[in-house]
Amino acid sequence: MIKDLLIILISSSLVNNVVLSQFLGLCPFLGVSKKTNTAAGMGVAVIFVITLASAVSGVIYKFILEKLGVTYLQTIVFILVIAALVQFVEMFLKKFMPPLYQALGVYLPLITTNCAVLGIALTNVQKKYGILTGIVNGFATAAGFTVAIVILAGIREKMEYNDIPESFKGMPIVLVTAGLMAIAFCGFSGLL
């Protein structure tokens, strides 16, 4: 059991990295990676939301959708649940944990229905993970996202003063960087 979870942890966070090999959550990855500390903030918010969302969607899938035999409604149900969940988390944090809200608040609306969140809820179902395994998978995937976005932000900070050809300024050079990172992450596939 523990061994299985460890394998999921490594494979979801490094080997099948959510951004660099599955292209989910690409927009925040490219959009919020200008500075390392905002990237880290975004990463923590993503970990928080995805872990919570995979727990909630796992419970709903097992105890409502499967019981009623309407598993084909998963896409519709998951997206509404996730959207509502993020709104709710935002309100809850604002009211009861102001310091955490101040740290994460800015990023929460950005991830409302980010494709990575829905993607992981659906992957958990597709791979027939149980609730606990699903939560671990969600956490690991989000951790992989955080690692990737923080590294990219670090590289982009260094690149700021480099002499880049005019037409490669902005998005193209970031994509080239992401591509090189993806090659590096391919190296992890030997781990398993």
Partner: peptide
């Protein structure tokens, strides 16, 4: 046809787009 290639192709595409815009 692996993941990194996707990034490189898109990088080339956005570079062309940048050039046209400039």
């Amino acid at each position: 046809i692996m993941a990194p290639g996707a990034f490189f192709v898109l990088a080339a595409l956005t570079a062309v787009q940048n050039k046209i815009r400039i």
